[in-house]
Write a protein that binds this DNA or RNA. Structure first.
Lengths: 335, 335
DNA sequence: ATGAAAGCGCTAACAA
DNA sequence: TTGTTAGCGCTTTCAT
């Protein structure tokens, strides 16, 4: 910038003003500066700019598992929206290791991001840091999560109880009675899916046997293990609602390997609408809510808070879930 | 930091030195400072730090399609490695719109990233910017790409000719003679896959009919369209090598919808080893090279250049491809 | 319409 | 061992 000013014989201030479209600059000077900028291929230093402005025009996003298409789709939506508004996106992946969350949060805070979009994989830790994010005037949005009830921030999520109800009611509607659930602890969205499952069962007068609820997790391997256990301990079960699609796919795999056919012998429904779920060996019936809406809404909320309504209320946006019927579910048969 | 210094009655410099583990600080002072840091929950401002250091400890990565598991896996590997070394990752997605590449590159340069990892979707544009990346002393690595022959930078890629050979030879070995190729232009890695296809055909004395090469692209929809055309124009074809897995999946879909069975009526092989490729309706035979190695190597090269060997030679690392046989390929039959 | 000067929060010579 | 000083490249009052 100094170089520009020197070559043009104007002050640095003038250059700065042109670059920021300040109105108090003569048309002639403006043109000259702009020409020089183009000639030298000058680009202003966002780091220096951030230091004075106390704005980095950078957001951070933390996801539990970047390999899962669900989160990738959210990140993609966020990136698309904010990059069109001149923001950059720092991506941090927990790789399902909750301990990393703190490190990543600190990394983002150190880098002075203007806001954080978080799909936490821990329901209780790091609330000190999260609180600080708000205190520092930064934006904070929880996506697909409803933990940390004390933290004041935007939340964009689906109705997870409804997710559980939708999946379970579908199975019940097909005629199933012995319906198992592969669960995940201890995040509230997982617990709510289980709650929806229980509600649907109760509503139809079906009693849930304790051993029908098998602790699994959000990962394919965990769904696989859970299903293996389930096949042994609960031969009466004809249908399974898995907490999410990766777990459902793991369950599918475990079933095949055990020679149990899906959907003929056992029926499986997932949640989250994983990529290529329609192309699977058994196209997966699932519950879907828009990742695009989720990501775009989160991005919009945070950008609005930052640029338009710094003191606006904290929103809570529900992305409605809907059932997607494919072929992994059928009526019950004896096994 | 000033606050820290004031409360402790020492100079800002002293605090800075402690924070940077400088050896010329008394043990007592060091402890006092560290205690205060913990007490106040102080974290240094990376923006200010970057300004003086002229290092942001941030890398940028640009990928053509974040939704494609191939690139997500690379990004994941990069993020895992660099975040463990204290670096942040700015992610930019082209969403298969090559025009965005320039904007994203400028965004990264403006933000003074220490290096950029690039899987370009344009073979010729933006070489001015790319050259500048090198000039500015920043790291630059091409991943899975070998375009811009004039640009001096690290390159981590696979042997794409071999990819084409591997896929095609497999089909030939199965007894196929009329083998089509769904191609993509104009990036050299795509052209090399086609070259490998031609080589393998030639080596086995098979003549490639011009209409067997159908222009497609890297996207599922493009593979779908290409296959639809192919089914009409080349009924003699019994096997297809698609430029990548998404295109192969599109082709699979087009085949099913046309009532053509895979692999019985037509056999399909892809490239890139997409996530869940083994769980597809027809588990996809493909050529695979490690995305983890690709990403980790790229990250290592750039970090080494930055921290250890600023003047080291530009490396060219080849990640070897290998065939993964699943069930989308079988021997030829009449259609 | 233009510019001088101060300052954003930090690091690094160099002195003391 | 500690502190003083001068920037890093930019924006922003406030004069002129």
């Amino acid at each position: 910038m100094r170089r520009l000013a020197e070559e043009l014989g104007v002050s640095i201030t003038t250059v700065s003003k042109v670059l920021n479209n300040q109105p108090d600059i003569g048309e002639a000077t403006r043109k000259r500066v702009l020409a020089k900028v183009a000639e030298l291929g000058y680009r202003r230093n966002a780091v220096a700019r951030s230091l004075t402005l106390r704005r980095t025009h950078t957001l951070g996003v933390i996801v539990p598992d970047l390999m899962h298409s669900f989160f990738v789709e959210i990140v993609t939506a966020v990136e698309a929206l904010i990059s069109s508004r001149g923001y950059g996106l720092l991506v941090a992946n927990l790789a399902e290791d909750p301990a990393k969350e703190r490190v990543h949060l600190e990394m983002l805070l150190e880098r002075q991001v203007d806001g954080v979009i978080l799909a936490s994989s821990t329901g209780t830790s790091n609330s000190d840091l999260l609180r600080r994010v708000g205190t520092l005037g930064k934006g904070l949005v929880f996506i697909d999560r409803d933990d940390h009830p004390k933290i004041k921030c935007h939340r964009v999520l689906t109705d997870d109880i409804e997710v559980g109800r939708l999946a379970t009611s579908h199975l019940i509607g097909l005629g199933h009675k012995a319906i198992a659930h592969i669960s995940a602890q201890p995040l509230v969205h997982a617990m709510r899916r289980e709650e929806g499952y229980r509600e649907a069962m109760a509503k139809h007068g079906l009693k849930v046997q304790p051993h029908w609820i098998v602790p699994g997790g959000f990962l394919q391997d965990q769904g696989y293990d859970a299903m293996q256990r389930l096949l042994k301990t609960a031969p009466e079960v004809t249908a399974v609602f898995a907490v999410n699609d990766p777990a459902a796919i793991g369950a599918l795999k475990a079933a095949w390997e055990a020679g149990v056919r899906v959907p003929e012998d056992i029926t499986i429904v997932g949640a989250g609408d994983i990529a290529h779920g329609d192309m699977l060996r058994v196209p997966l019936t699932t519950v879907s809510w828009s990742r695009l809406d989720l990501g775009a809404t989160a991005a919009k909320l945070i950008l609005d808070q930052l640029e338009a309504h710094p003191a606006g209320p904290f929103e809570r946006v529900i992305i409605p879930p809907r059932l997607i019927v494919r072929s992994s579910c059928g009526p019950p048969r004896k096994r």
